[in-house]
Amino acid sequence: MKTGPIQNDAALEVKDLVRYYGDVRAVDHLSLQVYRGEIFGFLGPNGAGKTTSIRMMCGLLKPTSGDVYIHGKRISAGESTEVRSNVGICPQENILWNKLTCFEQLVFSARIYNVPGKIARQRANHLLEKMGLAIKRDKLAATLSGGMKRKMNVILAIMHDPDIMVFDEPEAGLDPQSRVLVREFIRETALDKTVIFTTHNMDEADRIADRVAIIDSGRLLQLDTPGNLKKSIGEGDILELKVGSQVKRNLERAEEALKNKGFSVTVTGETFSVRARGLIPKIHEIYQILEREQITVSEMKVRENTLEDVFIHLTGKSLRQ
């Protein structure tokens, strides 16, 4: 059973982390704590600085300035230390030894962390079974499909049973079935571990993470539990109305009219998002206002707040943009 995050007991802490690539500031004064035992999500669009941040946290990338602490001990990039070997990383790209079989590379990656041979072999067999790769145990990694390589990439990160596991876009490139399998796998293996993962998928972050850091252009925009983040942009449900191409003046008048009636309105492209508590009985009223302003609705749906809404609220743009 998962114990949950132990607050004030930071497994990993970054202080004022900055990283430049030439003139581009990829990470901009990032400071945060990841608590022992929590699942911590980095949510942000592509190029937001998520991967750069976690590569610095693992010591694979040297920060321009700032510090990283693992279990309270400062780590230096490029140095092989016992502290740093408490981290297991699943990179965004599949990094495998193509000329080794699945079993061989799992055992090898455990042995270089001093895991005893018997335990390494048992763990390799167990993880292959769990990920549905047992049938490929003795096949060279080069012969695996993209999805299988992704799963191998995930289990290679945890073969040495690290305290902190870092997954960079773990579900990328997986079919829906494998996505669920990997998600469950991370959740199970994280029972007594600290998990950090990056994603640009709001559902993934919402479903797995105890806390989510929303990051854009290298800056930390907000950090909280998914529930609190969603609450932070307003209570209630959202009515999403697809209005298609309309006369701009009509749209502006409709937005104004809805706001006058006390609704919270966001217009993104051709979509009106109207937020309100106890929304369902108010749909008729909203619809009447739109009709009065000669707005034709092509699609309508009611949903709860998502992290996507939080991101739009914070940046004014969609995660997918």
């Binding site: 693992c58 694979l60 092989s80 740093r84 070997s85 990383i89 990094i95 495998l96 270089i112």
Partner: peptide, 14 residues
Amino acid sequence: ETRTLERLKISRLT
């Protein structure tokens, strides 16, 4: 080249 060195770099291997 295959970036497997990254896995070795974060291990205890010197």
